[in-house]
Amino acid sequence: MDGVSAVQARIFEIQARFRPAATTASAAAWASAAGAAGLTGTSSVSTWPAAAGTASESAVVAQAQKYLGVPYLWGGTDPSKGLDCSGFTQRVFGDLGIELPRTSSQQATTGKAVASLAAARPGDLVFFDNSSSRAGIDHVGIYLGNGQMIAAPQAGETVKVQAVGTPTVIRRVLAEPTGATAAPAGGGTLAGVPYADLFTRAASKHGIDAPLLAAVAQQESGFNSSAVSPAGAQGLMQFMPATARGLGVDPLDPASAIDGAATYLSSLTRQFGSTELALAAYNSGPGTVSRYGGIPPYPETENYVRSVMSKAEAYR
């Protein structure tokens, strides 16, 4: 078979995958790929929990497996030609009637935040910042459970099952499974942490991580709601007066300050596409992060991001 014939045969094979006759073949491909990835017991998608009245976790996994083997194509949204990472996720969810934005950085602002990989469920979107040359999200996959995801990785590869690694952001666009007792979107119980109920409530309301909010408060003020810095930053979350006014926040009122910080961090996360960049912007200002295209090379800001992330992890 010559090169042209081989390409045509591959296109026909991919196109056939999206007709009813391909159901058995694609299921077999899924079973093989899942088995190779160590997803024992999950090759039958009917074993995944369902969510009544919504596109269920099992439906997302089943739909995603139909695209196994489709070649990666940068900018690709047509499976008969190829898919890129966000084209793949957009296609899978679109097949189930759920509209996602086109790019991975835009998709990273949809749904609600999932606190950690331990809290992730099949069908969650997992996002990554893999490029050192520019800040923000640049890759996305669909989480399967057991530390695995389906994704369109990069040029020269195909849609496949692979280890999820360490996502930068995790978002849930599906409804919680029927009968499940869902943890608050912000995650974490924060037992023994001052103002724990306020952190949890604000995190759930604004779709961010409760341990992260608590860690920011610890870093900023040591949980001192009356703290005032030499520069004039006030309260638990150390808002400058102008910033507090802009957010409509009373910085010396813990409930108002925490809700304002959750609002602000949520906005910064959407703007920059990652928790680390949002924290850098909280510390040094959004304009500084935009100007440097990443975490500014200031020791104070670099240490701030590392310290808050470490504190947040300790609260989980």
Rank of each mutant, 00 (worst) to 15 (best):
P254H: 12
T166L: 10
G235R: 03
A183Q: 15
G94F: 12
F127I: 03
A185V: 15
S133P: 00
I295A: 05
E57D: 11
T23L: 14
A31N: 03
M240I: 07
F239R: 09
V126A: 14
G235M: 09
V70E: 12
V61Y: 01
A215W: 06
S32C: 02
P194A: 11
L39I: 11
Q90Y: 00
T243V: 08
T24S: 13
A231T: 12
D84P: 10
R270N: 14
S131Y: 02
I142N: 05
V164P: 00
A34I: 11
Q65T: 13
P230D: 12
E13R: 15
Q234S: 06
R10Q: 14
T54C: 05
V60F: 03
R172V: 04
F272S: 09
D129S: 13
F199Q: 00
A180D: 13
V193G: 03
L268E: 06
A29G: 11
Y298G: 04
L279C: 01
G287Y: 04
F93D: 07
N303K: 10
A182K: 10
T77S: 14
V173K: 14
A255H: 12
P177R: 14
L73A: 14
Y298Q: 12
A50I: 10
L236D: 08
A50H: 03
S266E: 04
T40Y: 05
D129G: 02
R102D: 02
G145K: 03
A135L: 11
N224Y: 07
V140C: 05
A25F: 06
E157H: 12
P101N: 10
A21M: 08
D259F: 04
Y282G: 06
G187I: 14
S290E: 15
A25S: 12
G232Y: 01
G75I: 11
L252Y: 09
G145D: 07
S5R: 14
A62F: 04
A210D: 05
Q15Y: 11
S290Q: 15
T301W: 08
Q106S: 14
D138Q: 05
A227E: 06
Q238C: 11
S307T: 15
P79T: 01
P71M: 04
K311I: 15
